[in-house]
Simulated assay, not measured.
Amino acid sequence: MSSELTLEQSTKSFDGYQYVYSHDSYTVDCNMKFGIYVPSIADKECVPLLIFLSGLTCTEQNFITKSGVQRLASKYGFIVANPDTSPRNCNIEGENDQWNFGEGAGYYIDATEGKWSENYQMFSYINDEFYELILSNFNVDIDRIGILGHSMGGHGALISFFKRPSQYKSVSALAPICNVTKCEWTRNAFMKFLGQDENLWKEYDACELVNSYSGPIPYAPILIDQGSDDKYKEDYLFPNVFLDACTKASFPIHLREQIGYDHSYYFIMTFLEDHFKYHKNEFEHSD
């Protein structure tokens, strides 16, 4: 099953085009938008794909307007696709009451509880429908697909990699929420989306998933960047808990503390090229 795409925006940038498309999603049962940068080389041959997952309160616009990704996607010859962070305009009571829950805050999980379960199926949307939509409509090298994200999106990238190892060659993250069962934001959301059984929550916790991961090991340790002055680091993101979990699981990780940086897009744009380099290196060592 494949959705028909509607072109919403087409803007020349560097040697390619920044597009925004919309489509009627059968997974989350609403109209969804996504951004995608396509370099000119993709007109001639299959190229690597990076999927970027954004953080709380974001739409598809934040990343494409604030990060400078177009220059990097052009330079490295990658298609870069970035979906929205949640379903939109579903008219569910309470979905706009909190900044960190509901619209703009889908947490990339599949809800099981009541009124949320029909629309808030973001894990399946990202890793099934959206994934196949990009492969079906753009010139992607299926053996060179990576995923990365920021904050809530970093959480989404990590769990997608651990739960779908056959789909992603590489993963990295910027200031990800690493331990969702401890984070106040996610505990509030998971209680509503998944109910009170915390064993179900663990199925979407990177610190838990790395312990049971049995897929391919990346060529180089996965890259995680974390700003030292990020006000969310200690109480919401828990990078060191994830580092400990990876160490215990003998899973390779490179956690870099970036001195003086906070949680903003200034942090993202500063280190984003390092993540392109990281994924390029992983792609070059594809089997």
Rank of each mutant, 00 (worst) to 15 (best):
K66T: 10
I51D: 01
N96Y: 05
C90A: 02
H155A: 11
Y76H: 14
P87N: 13
P83W: 00
S67T: 12
G104D: 07
G104W: 06
L49N: 07
E113A: 10
L53K: 08
F123V: 01
I147R: 15
G146Q: 11
Q70E: 15
L148Q: 08
L148C: 10
G153R: 11
A81G: 14
I64Y: 11
L133P: 00
I147V: 13
I109E: 14
F101R: 07
S124P: 13
D141T: 08
W116E: 09
G68Q: 08
Q70R: 03
Y108V: 03
I79Y: 05
F123L: 09
W99C: 10
A81H: 06
D141P: 07
D97G: 08
N82L: 01
H155V: 13
L72M: 07
E93M: 15
M152T: 05
I51N: 01
G146E: 12
E132F: 10
F101Y: 14
Y107F: 14
D110N: 15
W116L: 06
Q70V: 04
H155E: 15
Y125G: 06
G106K: 02
Y76N: 04
S124H: 01
I142G: 12
N137K: 03
I134E: 05
N89E: 11
Q70D: 07
A105R: 03
G156K: 13
N127E: 06
E93T: 12
N96H: 07
S136F: 07
N127V: 09
P48H: 13
D84W: 02
R71I: 11
I126A: 12
V80A: 00
T65V: 10
D97C: 12
Y76I: 02
R144C: 11
A111K: 06
I145W: 02
I51Y: 02
R71P: 03
E103V: 13
I134L: 02
Y108H: 01
A111N: 10
G156E: 02
K66V: 00
T112H: 12
I134A: 05
E60W: 08
P83N: 05
P83I: 05
N127L: 08
Y131G: 09
